[in-house]
Design a protein around this nucleic acid. Structure first.
Length: 821
RNA sequence: GCCGGGGUGGCGGAACUGGUAGACGCGCCGGUCUCAAACACCGGUGGAGGCAACUCCGUGUCGGUUCGAUUCCGACCCUCGGCACCA
């Protein structure tokens, strides 16, 4: 029998056997309890896998494998999120159709994934670019449309001048294009929008029902940015119209000394007086040519222009000037604000610059002011801005509003009541979250399945004509007009209206790359279905996902979008649960050697293929899990692999070189280490503390790989524990021990607490909290006996000599502490 | 500025509900094997002092609670992510 450890041979052998026997097939409607274990599917880039992918895949593979051994019917699927810019840009450069690039890249990825021994059910694989898949992405879009949640709107959007596409707010990072870093400017284009804001509250509230990491929950809540306040109407002196503002602080109405409109506000031209017209027009013009970058980065200096009009403050009838300024955003609230410079830092800065009145209507609590190092007088005089809590002052009128002396919260409530009674305002809620710009003027995406008819307007493509397949094009570049290249394919664009049959045109926009991933977890339950996106029965059996792991970079967008789609489908009665994922965790990034981010330009990219080639997949898996806590960033350390390699070699030696003895009862020490290891590994996998699980298995090996022989009853349970981590070597050794069935389906070992109770323990003896000795005593020994034994210890007695013992603290089986003086 | 992680040996990192800090691994030192080296195996390894037994110091900083604090409380520093004129 070959006794040399040869990972290449055994890994290929077992990967082949798993594939042949379909060991990891998830069985629909099995009687076993189901467990749906999900990792984010990759975008199959031309670079292949990097070591970050396997961190998540290995961890959840370990979980999936353990769950299978525990008797669960596990669904652990894999697929490819293949629409997107890199393939399209590659096509623009080379003329090679993205579908070809995609197909090649997927092949490469699959081969890499298989070489790592992941227990995916490959029968359920699909790519978002498969027409059989995107047919349903289109179908779901149509359901959004039919429910009024997809609409077309002309609005200012972010336009990347180099990619020539519209970007969602989320794709603009620091005022620049997320992927190319190019300039972003405003453009008005008709865009398909998805009304995610309709689900804003549900997306916040239902977080209470799921088990996501707290930081993930708070990031979601943060992103949605719910804020409560009031809409308040201001009449304009000499005008019929009135102006509505949103404020979270209606209690500060008496401190409102001017108003500000966003430059894009529809009332700007109406409110501009003849004298101010030139200045305002110029300001609006400059503002529209500022990119978001300029608007956010140049935030030190506030700019603005007076319109010439005055609004009437409803609480005191005062006329206050109306300005326009680009620090007020058109797409938040009503695009207009009341400015309370005494209690809002932005307004304060603006008022200082343009010499507008500042009126304090809120007295800070003395302690708060002191703590902030602020002189109360300066706040009252309006010399210093106080945006915090306090007591309302100078805020009463003769029409029934009197909030003087009230704390902020109470004053807000009272003011809203008063506004409602006067009919000039009501409580209101706003979100930072905007509706989702769902159009891209690009080729490589799902065509939006809509048809426009001069007479009937927009109609969805009828179900029996789905999918709307991407046609061949000659050029992949977006057109100069900003339309997608599809607009140039006349025989594709021109069609007939599904409603009246007259000539009509297809929508040429495609969907964003977030579309396909918004529901892929549903498709895995029934990937071949051609009459529904997934059958009700299969969804009911498999959903929800029990554990979903992915990158922290997806905790706002992808997670929010996919929860939104699922909630919508739930409301349509098409999926069984409102929340798609019971549990969500995130893995830390893998950095390059030396702690720097891995990148081609730094030349520190580690290729998993090379590692597998040199050490084998099992060593790679063990090392990557041992590298550090799963949720934290970790730096790759090539030297560190040696530890994992030695460990695997010792396992091999234990399984091949030592004599396996049957029918030999285990000693107490052997039972202890075995059951301690079972317990630790069993528990640690559940919390993905895989580094400490491995550490415990190393301890086991250190204790058991050095002798001449090893009892079967010791090695077999150990191999089962290690099998999820290093599946190939464990299968091989398991087979060599005479087993015919795979270890992957062998029952998970159980531990017995009774073996973990030690007969004796080491007890620490302290004097005044300092360790002076440690003594071995029988478990559960009497306090008195231990204390006299401790006092008898020379090193202890030395420290007690001449001192008075004030207290003897005894923690059973732990320590004794003498408090002396 | 706001929200959330994280600061423990030369390095990656352990540590249950407050109870012997540094498990496990890397590296390093010494030994066995070898002509030699590598591998493997055995032993050592927080710092300072001491021949030794031992002693003192030590979990970002300062303070507090406690018989006892990496763990709890208060203030602060550094660092990494996310958000950022959202009224």
């Amino acid at each position: 029998m070959n006794s040399k450890y040869d990972p290449k041979t055994i890994e290929a052998k077992w990967q082949g056997r798993w594939a042949e026997e379909k060991t990891f097939r998830a069985v629909d409607f099995s009687d076993k309890p189901k467990y749906y274990c999900l990792v984010e599917f990759p975008y199959p880039s031309g670079d292949g896998l990097h070591v970050g992918h396997p961190r998540s895949y290995t961890a959840l593979d370990i979980l999936a494998r353990k769950k299978r051994m525990e008797g669960y019917n596990v669904l652990f699927p894999m697929g490819f999120d293949a629409f997107g810019l890199p393939s399209e840009n590659y096509a623009i450069k080379t003329g090679i159709h993205p579908s070809i690039t995609t197909k090649n890249n997927i092949e490469r990825f699959k081969q890499q994934l298989k070489s790592l021994g992941f227990s995916f059910d490959w029968d359920r694989e699909f790519a978002t670019t498969d027409p059989g898949y995107y047919k349903w992405t289109q179908w779901i879009f149509i359901q959004f449309y039919k429910h009024g949640l997809a609409y077309k709107d002309k609005m200012p959007i972010n336009w990347c001048t180099s990619c020539k596409i519209g970007l969602a707010n989320e794709e603009v990072v620091d005022g620049r294009c997320e992927r190319c870093g190019g300039d972003v400017e405003k453009r008005n284009i008709e865009q398909w929008m998805l009304k995610i804001t309709a689900y804003a509250d549900a997306l916040i509230n239902d977080l209470a029902t799921v088990n996501f990491l707290d930081k993930i929950k708070s990031q979601q809540i943060n992103w949605i940015g719910r804020s409560e306040g009031a809409n308040v109407q201001f009449r304009i002196a000499g005008h019929e119209t009135s102006l509505t503002v949103f404020t979270t602080r209606p209690d500060t109405l008496f401190g409102a000394t001017y108003m500000v409109l966003s430059p894009e506000h529809p009332l700007v031209s109406d409110l501009t007086t003849e004298e101010q017209k030139a200045a305002v027009t110029e300001y609006v013009h400059t503002a529209s040519h500022k990119s978001d970058l300029e608007r956010t980065e140049l935030n030190q200096e506030k700019t603005g222009v007076f319109t010439g009009s005055y609004a009437i403050n409803p609480v005191n009838g005062e006329e206050i000037p109306v300005w326009i300024a680009d620090y007020v955003l058109i797409n938040y609230g009503t695009g207009a604000i009341m400015a309370v410079p005494a209690h809002d830092e932005r307004d304060f800065e603006f008022a200082k610059k343009f010499d507008l009145p500042i009126r304090c209507i809120l007295r800070p609590d003395r302690e708060d002011a002191q703590k902030a190092g602020i002189d109360m007088e300066n706040v009252i005089n309006g010399n210093v801005c106080w945006p915090h809590d306090g007591t309302i002052i100078n805020s009463s009128n003769d029409t029934g509003l009197s909030i003087d002396g009230k704390p902020v919260k109470e004053a807000i409530r009272a003011t809203i009541q008063w506004l409602e009674k006067q009919g000039i305002g009501e409580s209101a809620v706003n979100y930072k979250l905007r509706d989702w710009v769902f159009s891209r003027q690009r080729y490589w995406g799902e065509p939006i399945p809509m048809i426009y008819c001069e007479d009937c307007g927009w109609s969805p493509v009828p179900d029996d004509e789905l999918p709307v397949v991407l046609p061949e094009v000659e050029k992949y570049e977006p057109t100069d007009t900003g339309e997608s290249p599809l607009a140039l394919i006349e025989d594709w664009v021109n069609t007939s209206c599904p409603n009246c049959q007259k000539p009509a045109k297809r929508e040429t926009d495609t969907m964003p790359n977030w579309a396909g991933s918004s529901w892929y977890f549903l498709r895995y339950t029934d990937p071949g279905n051609d009459t529904a996106f997934a059958s009700v029965e299969k969804l009911a059996y498999w959903m929800p996902v029990d554990w979903y792991n992915g990158g922290m970079e997806h905790t706002t967008l992808h997670l929010l979008y996919s929860r939104f789609w699922n909630k919508f489908l739930y409301d349509c009665g098409l999926v069984p649960t409102s929340e798609p994922y019971l549990k969500r965790t995130s893995h830390g990034m893998v950095l390059g050697e030396g702690g720097e981010k891995m990148s081609k330009s730094r030349g520190n990219v580690i290729n998993p293929d090379d590692v597998v080639q040199q050490y084998g997949a099992d060593v790679f898996r063990v090392y990557e899990m041992f590298i550090g806590p799963f949720d934290q960033t970790a730096a790759w350390d090539t030297k560190g692999i040696a530890g994992a390699e030695r460990f695997i070699h010792r396992v091999w030696k234990m399984g091949t070189a030592l004599r396996i003895v049957d029918d030999q009862p285990l000693t107490a020490d052997q039972l202890y280490i075995l059951h301690a290891t079972i317990k630790k590994v069993t528990e640690d996998i559940e919390s993905l503390d895989l580094n400490t699980a491995i550490s415990q298995m190393m301890i086991f090996i250190n204790k058991n790989s050095t002798g001449q022989e090893i009892p079967r009853e010791l090695i077999e349970p150990f191999l089962k524990l290690l099998a999820p981590f290093a599946p190939h070597i464990c299968e091989e050794l398991w087979a060599r021990l005479g087993h015919e069935r795979c270890i992957a389906l062998a029952p998970w070992p159980e531990y017995d607490e009774t073996y973990l109770v030690k007969k004796s323990v080491n007890i620490a003896i302290q004097v005044n909290g300092k360790l002076r000795a440690s003594i071995e005593v029988g478990i559960g020994s009497e306090k008195d006996g231990i204390i006299s034994k401790a006092k008898a210890n020379s090193n202890v007695s030395r420290h007690l000599e001449g001192k008075q013992i004030l207290k003897e603290i005894y923690v059973p089986n732990r320590l004794v502490n003498f408090v002396v003086r």
